[in-house]
Simulated scan of single mutants.
Amino acid sequence: MHHTFIDTNGIRLHVVQDGPADGPLVILLHGFPEFWYGWYRQISELAKAGYWVWAPDQRGYNLSDKPQNLASYSIDTLAADIIGLIDAARRQKAVVVGHDWGAAVAWWTAVVYPERLERLVVLNVPHPVVMKRFASRNLEQMLRSWYIGFFQLPKLPERLLARNNYRLLVKTLLGSSRPGTFTRADLEQYKTAWSQPGALMAMINWYRALWRSPESRQKSIRVKVPTLLIWGAQDHFLMQEMATFSIDLCDNGRLLLLQKATHWVQHEEANRVLEGIKGEVTI
């Protein structure tokens, strides 16, 4: 794997690259509270299959730039970051893959820039419009998303998450995943990323910008590019019903439901996710 820094959309992102530079471009977008390392089970295998893999630390995470103002974390800005990466690769299109917040960015990139995506693969996060609808109107999802409201508070979330060597974040990862999903070595990698100066505040600012810097109005919220939504049915945070509503917003969408997987599906079902990214998945 090659570590580099890419200038895009007015900031600099740390990007891990692997595979042949003349292969199909795949961009892997992590979510909260991960960083590029969340894809380590897929990066090398995709490279072996001939793909040129780019796995960035998204803005605010790990070694990438961490703007301080909330507007810098709007979904429109985050999507523009990805277009900047495709431009930096000197490509017209890419396969864009996202998990958690990375999935939200991938969805919105497909809505706003459909001509720049070859395919879309999203893991365990619904279309942003579906998420906003459920998070504001569905009581069960509102209860599951309680932390979004908590993250709107100033300074307190950062202090609590950093306490006792990031105990709360570690507990969240271990408590919401299948036993053995995250090893002690994995957790040390995450702690190093979380301890980067300004990282915790920037990571939480994604949630703060969710309501204060909403997405731009689009003529259509439909997804026109071929889409695969992979969903772990044991997700503690997000209701499975949102997956079906999201596929309904796709012109060419398929849903792969993995009954035994949790929210951390790319870790627990690494091979199935790999097949999905390569376009070889069977449903």
Rank of each mutant, 00 (worst) to 15 (best):
V95D: 08
P226E: 01
L70C: 09
H267R: 14
G175Y: 13
V125E: 04
Y113E: 12
M131R: 10
A94G: 09
F150D: 10
V97P: 01
L257G: 04
P154A: 12
E118N: 11
F237L: 02
L161N: 08
W107A: 03
R116C: 11
V97L: 05
W211A: 15
L156Q: 08
Y113I: 01
V130D: 01
R254C: 00
V265D: 07
D186S: 02
S195H: 02
A89I: 10
H263P: 12
P197F: 08
M203D: 05
W52V: 00
E115N: 14
Q68C: 04
E45C: 04
V125M: 13
L274Q: 10
F150V: 11
Y37E: 06
I11N: 08
R178M: 13
W36D: 12
L228K: 00
V16P: 06
C250D: 02
L169G: 01
L85N: 11
P114W: 10
K132L: 11
I204R: 05
I204M: 07
F182Q: 04
E140D: 03
G198W: 03
A106F: 01
K219M: 05
D100E: 09
R41L: 14
Y37H: 10
Q259C: 00
Y73Q: 08
G232W: 04
Q152L: 08
L255T: 02
L256I: 11
S44R: 15
A199K: 03
N164E: 15
E34M: 06
F32S: 02
S216T: 12
E188G: 00
Y73R: 07
K191T: 06
A89C: 12
Y61D: 02
V265I: 09
L120K: 04
M242C: 01
S145K: 05
L29K: 03
V26L: 09
T4S: 15
Y113P: 06
Q234E: 15
A202E: 08
L70Y: 11
I43S: 02
V96R: 12
Q58S: 08
N252G: 00
A106Y: 03
Q218F: 00
M239N: 11
A49L: 05
T192N: 10
H3P: 03
R116Q: 13
G84I: 09
Y113F: 10
W231L: 07
W146E: 01
Q240L: 09
R133L: 01
V26Y: 13
H30E: 02
R12M: 04
